[in-house]
C-alpha cells in the first residue's frame, strides 16, 4: 500500500493510471498524451508497475500497459491490511492486559 501511495503522489502518474484504466496501451501511445519524453513515461510506468498498480505485457518489442482493474481486490486488500494491523495491536494490548492481571493475582 505504501508503494502505491508513493507511486500516485506524482500527478503525472495518476494521469497515466487513468489513461490505462479502461484500455491497454503501449508506452508510445501513453507518451503521446503528455508533453513529456518517452524515457520519462517509461520511468513513470516502471514505478507504477513496481507498486502493483499496472501490469505489463510484452508483445514482440512492444510493451503494453494496463491498470489493475479490480476495485474489489483493492477493497479486499485494504480491509485485509486494516484488520491485520488492527488484530496485531489487539493481540499486543490484550496480552499486556493478561500479564497485568496475572501479576495482580500473584501478589
Amino acid at each position: 500500500m505504501e508503494a502505491a501511495l508513493k507511486a500516485i503522489a506524482e500527478p503525472r502518474r495518476r494521469a497515466i493510471l487513468q489513461l490505462v484504466h479502461h484500455a491497454e496501451r503501449t508506452a508510445g501511445d501513453i507518451a503521446e498524451h503528455f508533453e513529456v519524453t518517452r524515457p520519462a513515461v517509461s520511468q513513470h510506468l516502471r514505478v507504477l508497475k513496481e507498486a502493483g498498480l499496472v501490469t505489463e505485457r510484452r508483445d514482440g518489442t512492444r510493451r503494453w500497459y494496463r491498470a489493475r482493474p479490480e476495485t474489489i481486490r483493492d477493497l479486499q486488500r485494504f480491509l485485509e491490511d486494516f484488520w491485520d494491523e488492527g488484530l496485531e495491536r489487539l493481540k499486543a494490548a490484550a496480552e499486556w492486559e493478561e500479564r497485568r492481571k496475572r501479576r495482580g493475582a500473584k501478589t
Binding site: 485485509e80 489487539l90 493478561e98
Partner: peptide, 24 residues
C-alpha cells in the same frame, strides 16, 4: 502474523492471543 484466509467477497482474519477470552 495473523493467518490469512480470504474467500469470495469477504475477508476472514485470525489471530492467536495469549490471553483468556474473558480478557480479550
Amino acid at each position: 502474523r495473523p493467518d490469512t484466509v480470504t474467500e469470495g467477497l469477504e475477508v476472514t482474519r485470525e489471530v492467536r492471543i495469549e490471553a483468556s477470552p474473558e480478557t480479550v
